[in-house]
């Protein structure tokens, strides 16, 4: 890619990642949430890959790490749901609800948002990576 694209990417990619994390963490207060934020996080890595090539992005998150993190995200979500059994029911929101419109509120909903954000973020990146690797092996073979 050209110098302009690389420079702009270097400037913006951190901001995009940060914005994704913001969307995930404020999912219970404003529009967005785990899925939307996760997609933005994944797009920041995809952006990096488009500008600097596959190797730079894989150096940040290898495909093995991505698939492990994806499983961990899913298990975390299941764990949050199972936490409800402490209060007697599956998916029961037993943590303190807090004051509305504050960051630390809404019980286990932010936790599940974080779990979904991890899963979607690395999952989407892993899908993109798999398609790229598939394409690359085809060209070589």
């Amino acid at each position: 890619m050209s110098l302009i694209v690389k420079t702009i990417t270097r400037l913006t990619v951190g901001l995009i990642l940060l914005f994704g994390i913001y969307i995930i963490l404020h999912g219970h207060l404003s529009p967005g949430g785990g899925f939307a934020g996760g997609v933005i996080v994944a797009l920041s890595f995809v952006h990096l890959m488009l500008a600097f090539g596959k190797d730079t992005a894989v150096a940040k998150i290898s495909s093995n790490l991505a698939s492990n993190l994806e499983s961990i995200g899913a298990l975390m979500f299941l764990g949050v749901a199972l936490l409800g059994f402490l209060g007697g029911s599956f998916f029961l929101n037993i943590l303190g609800k807090g004051q509305s419109f504050k960051l630390f509120s809404a019980g286990s909903i932010p936790l599940s948002n974080i779990a979904i954000g991890i899963k979607v973020g690395v999952g989407l990146f892993a899908i993109f990576l798999a398609l790229v690797i598939l394409e690359k092996s085809k060209k070589e073979g």
Binding site: S67, S71, I72, A74, L75
Partner: peptide, 8 residues
């Protein structure tokens, strides 16, 4: 749970 434990 088994599915994701196996993949992990």
């Amino acid at each position: 749970g088994t599915a994701f434990l196996i993949s992990l």
